[in-house]
């Protein structure tokens, strides 16, 4: 049996979902023979590889960088998983949607307590007008709400997917879990 190519990416989220993923712990070893982790913030490959079987996406789409990333990931992934509330419903990152990017930049980078008040250009990604969930931008195949989804939930999702089954999450997680 060929190993399933698994990837994870991290966009606008707190990394909590990745922490929860790591909490799968020794059980990751149980499935290690079945998977190959080809890309992840934890593995640090430079470019996102082609022909990925499953990508777990943490975080909402918030900047031009996120947008480019998710388009590429979608094009190169068979099954795209929205992992956690930020990916599923934009969650806390979307709380900035009531402000314009300009107002946000000014409030943060030109704050009176900044040593050198200056809005950076080119060094940080440009904010999109609104933070949006992943499925507002690309097609999503599996939704795993939760903030973060528990390690059990993520393990279950992963095991089902690598065995070619669609996980049924109805009694396992929820928004805000």
């Amino acid at each position: 049996m060929t190993k399933k190519k698994i990837a994870t990416i991290w966009m606008d989220g707190c990394s909590g979902c990745h922490m929860s993923f790591l909490d799968i712990d020794h059980r990751l070893l149980d499935i290690a023979d079945l998977i190959e982790l080809v890309h992840s913030p934890l593995v640090d490959h430079k470019d996102f590889p082609p022909d990925v079987d499953v990508t777990l996406v943490e975080g909402a789409v918030s900047s031009n960088e996120d947008l480019e990333k998710i388009l590429k990931v979608r094009a190169r992934t068979k099954i795209l998983v929205s992992m956690g509330d930020c990916a599923v419903n934009a969650n806390v990152p979307a709380m900035r949607n009531r402000f314009t990017p300009k107002a946000l930049n000014e409030a943060i980078y030109l704050a009176p307590n900044m040593a050198q008040p200056q809005i950076p250009h080119g060094t940080v990604p440009t904010l999109l007008p609104q933070v949006r969930p992943v499925h507002a931008v690309v097609k999503v195949d599996v939704y795993v709400p939760g903030c973060p989804p528990s390690n059990d939930t993520l393990f279950y999702v992963l095991s089902e997917l690598i065995h070619g089954r669609m996980p049924d999450l109805s009694d396992k997680t929820r928004f805000g879990a």
Binding site: D85, M95, C147, S170, R174, F175
Partner: peptide
């Protein structure tokens, strides 16, 4: 703007419960 993880009613919310009962995941 329903941001469950930071809501005081998270876990005791009728809207959330209804969503769960109807198996809404996004």
């Amino acid at each position: 703007n329903h941001v469950c993880p930071v809501c005081i009613s998270n876990g005791h919310c009728e809207l959330q419960d209804t969503a769960i009962a109807l198996q809404i995941n996004h």
